[in-house]
């Protein structure tokens, strides 16, 4: 394994645990430093307030030259988040720079929550509601906030029920 990558991940973790930006947390899996679990707390005064959204970050040897893959584990309703949890964020794709560390990635995602980019929609319905029907958008987001408090199994169950109920 690349020593550069490992050293950097250890430093990222040190920085994130000693000087954590508000509303985010993250740590590597105990048995695999290349896999990180993270939580973003929904920013206050936004529809996402009080949500605890879980994410998985997957690094490979090329970090920090290449970005990690980042995915929401919690179900999201957001213009820039795909149904499978992947997100559309420039710094994770074509604007990556090794100056971004895990704290910076999570902070960017946090600010994306309250400042979506409707021009680059990953969820067309969320993007449309965000533009045209804010009230309904907020209602749908708040539903995901409540779901985010459940543990993953319960959440999955709700998602299945929600899907069958909607048809």
């Amino acid at each position: 394994m690349s020593t550069n990558c490992r050293r950097r991940l250890i430093r990222d973790f040190k920085r994130l645990s000693s000087d954590p930006p508000g509303g985010i947390s993250g740590s590597p899996c105990p048995d695999n430093i290349m896999l990180w679990n993270a939580v973003i707390f929904g920013p206050v005064d936004t529809p996402f307030e009080d949500g605890t959204f879980k994410l998985l970050l997957t690094f490979d040897e090329s970090y920090p030259t290449k970005p990690p893959t980042v995915k929401f584990l919690s179900r999201m309703f957001h213009p820039n988040v795909y149904a499978n949890g992947e997100l559309c964020l420039d710094i994770l794709q074509n604007r990556w720079s090794p100056t971004y560390d895990v704290a910076a990635i999570l902070t960017s995602i946090q600010s994306l929550l309250h400042d979506p980019n409707p021009n680059s929609p990953a969820n067309a319905e969320a993007a449309q509601l965000y533009r045209e029907n804010m009230k309904e958008y907020v209602r749908r987001v708040k539903a995901t906030v409540e779901e985010s408090w459940l543990d993953p199994e319960e959440q999955e169950k709700m998602a299945v029920e929600g899907a069958s109920g909607g048809q």
Binding site: Y82, E86, C88, Q93, N94, N119, S120, P121, A122, A124
Partner: peptide, 27 residues
């Protein structure tokens, strides 16, 4: 050419297969 995420999203592309891919997959 610089990768521009914008033309890759939505249905305007007229290429359903591409537009259904997640950005990371497209990348």
């Amino acid at each position: 050419p610089i990768d521009d995420p914008e033309p890759l999203t939505g249905g305007e592309l007229g290429n359903a297969e591409l537009s259904t891919l997640a950005p990371s997959a497209l990348f």
